[in-house]
Design a protein around this nucleic acid. Structure first.
Lengths: 205, 205, 205, 205
DNA sequence: CATGAATGAGTGTTCATTCAT
DNA sequence: TATGAATGAACACTCATTCAT
């Protein structure tokens, strides 16, 4: 009965086993190699599924990756929104946001690699659904900054957009060695360093 | 005799005309499309050279790109070294370095795109000659920071490596929209914003 | 009871709903594209029926088309036989036959296209049931000619078969532009022209 | 030296052996099966050539057929123009034209089948180069008819276009059994029958 | 130094067909 | 009766690469 409820709530389609296997296979392969060098044949073989079946469920290979990405991003969006609840003050939210971002990078290196290194030079990426979700995610940070500016917590002589970019870029490059060489890193320590460095320049004096 | 001079000037390689044409062709194509979707046939056609000839000079397509990259990077390295000469104080050098980096991004968007979006998830990139030059370039910034720490200009409670990463990441993401959508941007303004934001957190108080 | 009646009227087959839907779907698709490029998947989708179901009723796709063709041809045969009733004289019948043929081409361009452009180079066409019906249809014209020869209305120094072919070919090519480019044309005018041209050479002098 | 001259005159490109083999292979296969069911693999195998090579010389499979068709049609056009030279009077030309057409059908049944049964329902046929040549060929007949009308040899109360269609259609269907079942037939006899039948209705009385 | 010709191994994609339920 | 899921075999097409000349 609980199951029935879940279905109803989430509006989940029945999810045929082949589809699940394919997605799982892609995730496995993404751990081993970059997306561009993954072939349908490999996916099919890994999924123990017929090649043609992939086409049944996913229009093309990009579509398959985007669907997997979307799922991941939507999940992450929910988490970050949840994580920010109940936190008071723009700077506190900022710190939390940064930590979450770095932590997520550390927790799922495969997706981090895809999002930071692979997807950005895909052909249709900047008009994809995934990119839309990323923009929403960006806006969370942007809103925090704008709120801080409005409340006098954050300086107003740098555009919120540029502050946002600086933060994202700084966080990304702190994680980059970990992402590229698949090494563990400490979200706590990196967050600490990043905030120490940028907060003095962000706070309104 | 003139030839001899050319040889001497340009370096060791004799630079046969076919080779030059191929490299030129790749540069043209890189302006239009991303490296991964450029084919030998296209290069040969653009270079007005036989396909087979490419093999005479370049082991494989990656090799070709790397050679082009190397050339570009070596050139840029020289420029940055020259640009930093005669500047006093770590923070002043830092500002100059940042400006040069952002300015270079703006000036040559093709190479910026390759370096920030494409090359990083190539298979052999991190053991390539190009990467070695990038590391050297990284070290220039690192040395500036270390010098600043040593002279008491820069705080010592954040590792120079992390400071370096924060600066590179921040600068990169400030340029990213311009790189991705091939838009012009103002190196002066972006440098100003970035320094305003990070210098308070970098300076030793 | 009504059902029973329908059965009796339509013939032997019980005509299950799925079957009807499939046939209807094929007819719809034939209006849009040529038969060779219609896929099972499309038929099933258009019919709002499962792909596998088609196999219940039709051995293969050719079989399906032939059944649809047969239906159409049988219907047309009845009409032509009815139309020729009560007409006196071979030449009058000839004129009526020609008009009916051209009129049918104009009225149902889809089937005309199939019969004149598509079906003739199908593998098994010349041993199919459809071809048998076509032969019967051919024979109607042939019989008219033979009757005319016998009665001295039509010249006897050209074989009836060749006269038949000349008439069919001429009529077909008069309709061809209309069929190919799906344009309307006037059966009256074309019949008039055709008869004007061939009757002098057909009539016994 | 003679060779050099030929090259220069005809403007012939060197014709690489692979290209020739491919065209030859297609011609062989066309004798056995209809064009639509011929695959690249078969052509390559028959030509004893790599599959990829076909793509080097011909953009796609349609392109390959069209090039072969064009060659054939251009050749035939030259022949018909030559054949009509020195013939006086529209009706005499007409007879010669008809005989040539029927004779060509008999002589090369493969191409006749393609032109009458296959090519007409190809997607891009009516905007292809082949179709343009066919139109030119059509116009030869049309011009003969127009000339006859002008000189008072041919009746003027049926449009030349319709006369043309009637002739082409009649001739085609006289040849059709031969084309379809690959049977020999007598151009002389068929021409005789056709002219006997249509000339009385064509001549101006 | 440079070319034209040719190759082999793959690519994503499509399709008719089958089968358990 | 009708369906969803899955399959296998082929399809046209592409590409980096080689080699004789």
């Amino acid at each position: 009965m609980v199951r029935e409820e879940n279905k109803a709530k989430k509006g989940v389609r029945p999810q045929p086993p082949g589809r699940i296997k394919i997605i799982k296979a892609l995730k496995i392969l993404l751990k081993e190699k970059d997306f561009n060098s993954i072939t349908w044949a490999e996916i099919a073989k890994t999924a123990e599924v017929n090649e043609g079946l992939i086409y049944k469920y996913f229009k093309d290979s990009r579509n398959l990756l985007h669907q997997v990405l979307e799922e991941y991003l939507e999940q992450y969006m929910k988490e970050i929104e949840f994580a920010l609840k109940g936190i008071d003050g723009a700077l506190n939210k900022l710190r939390k946001f940064i930590w979450s971002q770095i932590n997520a990078c550390n927790a799922d290196k495969v997706f981090s690699r895809i999002l930071t290194l692979e997807v950005r030079n895909f052909a249709g990426y900047y008009s994809s659904q995934s990119y839309k979700i990323i923009k929403q995610y960006d806006n969370i940070l942007l809103d925090i900054i704008k709120e801080g500016v409005q409340k006098g917590e954050i300086r107003d002589d740098i555009s919120p957009g540029n502050i946002k970019r600086i933060i994202f870029g700084a966080a990304e490059h702190l994680c980059l060695p970990g992402i590229v060489f698949n090494r563990e890193f400490s979200p706590d320590a990196l967050t600490e360093d990043l905030c120490k460095l940028i907060f003095p320049g962000i706070e309104k004096t």
